[in-house]
Design a protein around this nucleic acid. Sequence first.
DNA 1: GACAAAAGTGCATAAGTATGCAAGAGGATT
DNA 2: AATCCTCTTGCATACTTATGCACTTTTGTC
Lengths: 150, 150
Amino acid sequence: MNVERLNVIREVLSSSPVASQDELRRKLRRRGIQVTQATLSRDIHQLRVSKGPGGYSLPNGHAAPAEEDDQAPSVVEMMNSFGLRVVQAMNQVVLSTVMGGAQPVAAALDRAEWPQIVGTIAGDDTVLVICGDARQAAEVGTRLRSMLEP
Amino acid sequence: MNVERLNVIREVLSSSPVASQDELRRKLRRRGIQVTQATLSRDIHQLRVSKGPGGYSLPNGHAAPAEEDDQAPSVVEMMNSFGLRVVQAMNQVVLSTVMGGAQPVAAALDRAEWPQIVGTIAGDDTVLVICGDARQAAEVGTRLRSMLEP
DNA sequence: GACAAAAGTGCATAAGTATGCAAGAGGATT
DNA sequence: AATCCTCTTGCATACTTATGCACTTTTGTC
């Protein structure tokens, strides 16, 4: 299973700076894991790792390995239809929609009952999503953003 | 000077997801700034922007060079006409207005595009203004308060 | 066990990003 | 003015990352 490898990757990334996927590949090889850069690219995407100055870094709140989770079909639909922009601020996520789209999106979010979401407030074209803390808001923001039109 | 461009880049990145430097280049061109991908690569490094799933994102703690504060005459008008009270809480500002005044005030704020403001939500007599953080909310609160009738 | 569907991987290569080099702009010094 | 710096940028290209395709392994079903 590749879960083992993902765990090692997390460990490597958190213990020393890694500048490229090829460097990561060499470090993994030293630990007995031998894969190609292509696979690491996929792993990194799956782990939702981000790259900035100073190399790769794990997501702020380390979420579990790969939780490609449950279908929130309704939310996806609403986001696709109305969603424009997602911005996180502290423990909140501000979700901009086309005019009149906020209410249905908020309703869909309420129905979905994501565990991170404490509640939502909808205006005409903006939904304020209140989460338990900043980490949870980041998760929600990422997830919502991934539902926007590419 | 390139400081102007850096500010616009920050604004673009915070307002909509950007997946690549070339996409950023096109968005900047629409705003009248025309540079090559190479320059953007350097700018992004300078801004310490990081790239993750969901595109580029500004550094968590933003050390921002101050930007100009344009006058937003329209906001002043609206505040004079409808504004009653301004209260800051965390990264938010709650703005009370006369009944029916919230929507126009919020619309004016949206139009003004203050950099500190992430988004606004208007009810009937209350506007919730969401800012990037508490400091920015304080700035916005002070500025709005100064627009109230003495 | 046999088959079908899904997941994981490498290869080759497309897509995206960083950088050495040189050119031009503006400033300071002589 | 001439010269020398420094800063900024574009160009070309090296470097890095993502992905379509084919193949193999795993998982689920009968």
